[in-house]
Amino acid sequence: MIFRIFLCLCAALVIIEIAVHRHVIFSWEGWPGFYALWGFVSLFAIVILGKYLGRLIKRDEDYYDD
């Protein structure tokens, strides 16, 4: 239920964006839905990359205690 409301909110934001005037500096910034896609992809990539980083650097909690 909460998830559905959340999805509707996301969709609404993309629709609103078309209606409002955008003040754009870099042209790619003005593509419709750019920020939505950017946010989604960034977080996805951060988590996945973080997961791989974890495989490299994860140790036991008492690693330094000996």
Partner: peptide, 15 residues
């Protein structure tokens, strides 16, 4: 609006 998009779609990715 775009800032909200960035944040909420990031949250969507988390979900």
């Amino acid at each position: 609006v775009t800032q909200l998009q960035l944040l909420l779609f990031a949250a969507l990715a988390f979900v």
